[in-house]
């Protein structure tokens, strides 16, 4: 029997059997949750500006990131963020809060394997690729900027 043909046929059959993700409701949820997170960030920024009007714009955005990262880590720690993520999908992954969650969650899981080899090593198992590609992309963009 030709295994390749059999496997191809079976995989095609499985493909049409698989239930499809309903795009519109998931997209909608991702859109509004992501939007709400960004609105919270904007709100924090406006609050900071109201309290300290002399702060520069870049300082304000740094503070916004720090506060959002902290909130997301806290929510991960108390077991809320994974529920938001299950509901919103990309809506809660794409903002900086998702990045915070992707570092905090492995750290929590692997802390019982020791500080160095558990926590520190495994901490970037999810976020690692994001950092690598982010750094690489910034280098490429920088090079392009240099020549034009």
């Amino acid at each position: 029997m030709n295994y390749k043909d059999r496997n191809k046929k079976y995989n095609e059959y499985v493909k049409q059997k698989i239930p499809k993700t309903r795009s519109w409701p998931t997209l909608f949820n991702a859109f509004w949750v992501g939007g709400v997170i960004c609105m919270i960030g904007q709100g924090i920024g406006d609050g900071i500006r109201a309290i300290w009007p002399d702060l520069s714009g870049s300082m304000v955005s740094a503070y916004i990131s720090i506060i959002l990262i902290f909130i997301a880590s806290l929510l991960t720690g108390i077991g809320v963020y994974d529920r938001i993520g299950a509901f919103a999908g990309a809506g809660s992954i794409v903002p900086i809060t998702g990045f915070s969650n992707s570092i905090t969650s492995p750290a929590m899981d692997y802390k019982n394997e020791g500080i160095i080899f558990g926590l520190c090593v495994k901490m970037f198992s999810i976020a690692g690729p994001v950092i690598v590609i982010g750094v690489l992309a910034s280098a490429v963009v920088g090079l392009i900027y240099l020549f034009i």
Partner: peptide, 9 residues
């Protein structure tokens, strides 16, 4: 993935 990671299954 880690338990608390906010991803969709």
């Amino acid at each position: 993935f880690p338990l608390e990671l906010g991803n969709q299954r």
